[in-house]
């Protein structure tokens, strides 16, 4: 662990050095130096707009992600359980899934206007499909022996779903939720570049319009750092889940 941190720090230091050299070599309007970016980032932070943008983005992310995760899990449980119905839905999902959520933005703006909704809707689309598919697959893979135990104890279908199938699928569902965090965060920024008046994606557009490459790079770094933070938080949560659910998932 110690060497991992150390080597990571060296990697970042090398990148900063190369970046600085490139910035000095070329025009600072094209490539601002790390120090310039740091200074601008600090100004954005100290004057308040950065905190507001981060807050707005995180709020949109939480709303879109939570709604998509809830819808994905519930519909995934139902379609996984009623496998016959899934055969009708599966081809539809397979067609919709490869479409980038961004492609929907014209319609989203037409239907819902601008503001918070486009970003939330795009995260929803980005998160919903992977969670749905992970849940359907997990339910289908429920150990037969668990279902026999439920049958033997004369559990109702609802009891079997809530007491056996949902918890048995949970480790796999959580893997799907984890992957969707990254995807959702990537598309959040894209969503906010469409018609939003706030958020980290808006900050990117705003920096471009104001010819402020130092703001632009500061925003990019913040987006990356927050993505890393979210992923780390989920990793910790997932470890707890696996610990509780047992190392073997059978």
């Amino acid at each position: 662990m110690g060497t991992k941190v150390w080597k990571g720090a060296v990697g970042i230091a090398l990148l900063l050095a190369m970046w600085h050299l490139a910035a000095v070599r070329y025009d600072s309007v094209l490539v601002p130096t790390p120090m310039q970016v740091l200074r601008s980032g600090w100004e954005l932070l100290a004057d308040g707009p950065l905190v507001t943008h981060i807050g707005t983005s995180l709020a949109r992310f939480v709303v879109g992600y939570a709604a998509a995760a809830l819808c994905g899990i519930v519909s995934g449980l139902l379609f996984g359980w009623f496998a016959g119905a899934w055969r009708f839905v599966d081809p539809v999902v397979q067609i919709l899934r490869p479409v980038s959520p961004i492609a929907w933005t014209p319609f989203i703006v037409l239907w819902f206007g601008i503001g918070d909704i486009p970003a939330v809707a795009i995260i929803f689309i980005a998160v919903f499909f992977p969670v749905l598919l992970a849940t359907v697959a997990a339910v289908g893979r429920t150990e037969k022996i668990y279902l026999r135990v439920a049958q033997n104890f004369a559990f109702s279908r609802f009891q079997t779903l809530t007491k056996i199938v949902l918890p048995a699928s949970f480790p796999q569902i959580s893997t799907g939720l984890h992957q969707a965090i990254g995807t959702g965060w990537v598309f959040l920024v894209a969503g906010e570049m469409v018609g939003a008046q706030s958020g980290l994606g808006f900050l990117i557009i705003d920096s471009r319009n104001n010819l402020q490459p130092d703001w632009l790079l500061a925003a990019i770094l913040v987006i990356g750092a927050l993505g890393l933070l979210l992923d780390t938080a989920v990793n910790v949560g997932e470890k707890q889940i696996y610990k509780k659910w047992g190392t073997t998932t059978r």
Binding site: I145, Y146, R148, V149, N152, F153, A154, I164, P167, A168, F170, K244, W245, G246, T248, T249, R250
Partner: peptide, 15 residues
Amino acid sequence: PRHTFVFQDYGLLPW
């Protein structure tokens, strides 16, 4: 439930 099955692989719920 009056005729309870005991499985070789136990069938315990790990969670």
